[in-house]
């Protein structure tokens, strides 16, 4: 259930400017209210976008967390790619549904050229 609470925190953070201010002021204190593992808490404090994607956070939630930290779009995409390279396939959640092993494998599976999906 822990991925649920990581995403619940990010869902609430994305919606609530007051929570964003409290998160900026004291990240650990805000996160103490959520049932998180040490790994999850550390990823949210850092923030470690690649690890959060590996843990299974939905990109529709994660991209706003990256924007909150002033992470540019291309950098956001690269951090997720690096997270998969470093930590392995997505552990759970929607992207783990049929397995996800990175851009190159996925590109091959679609029979497309390996331009890396870069933009």
């Amino acid at each position: 259930m822990s991925l649920y609470f990581v995403q619940k925190f990010l869902f609430e953070l994305n919606r609530d400017e007051g929570l964003q201010e409290r998160y900026h002021a004291d990240r650990e204190a805000v996160l103490a209210r959520y049932d998180l593992t040490e790994e999850e808490q550390a990823a949210l404090v850092a923030p470690d976008i690649g690890l959060l994607f590996h843990l299974g956070v939905n990109g529709q939630i994660l991209m706003h967390f990256a924007a909150l930290h002033q992470i540019e779009w291309a950098d956001y995409l690269q951090r997720m790619r690096d997270g998969i390279a470093e930590h392995g396939p997505v552990r759970e959640g929607v992207y783990a549904m049929t397995g996800y092993e990175g851009v190159d494998v996925h590109t091959d599976a679609l029979g497309q050229s390996t331009d890396g999906g870069s933009e």
Binding site: F53, N58, G59, Q60, L62, M63, L77, M80, R81, I84, Y95, G102, V103, H106, T107, L110, Q112, G117, S118, E119
Partner: peptide, 8 residues
């Protein structure tokens, strides 16, 4: 969208 494969 919003994944490493964004743009594909």
């Amino acid at each position: 969208p919003a994944t490493p494969d964004s743009g594909k």
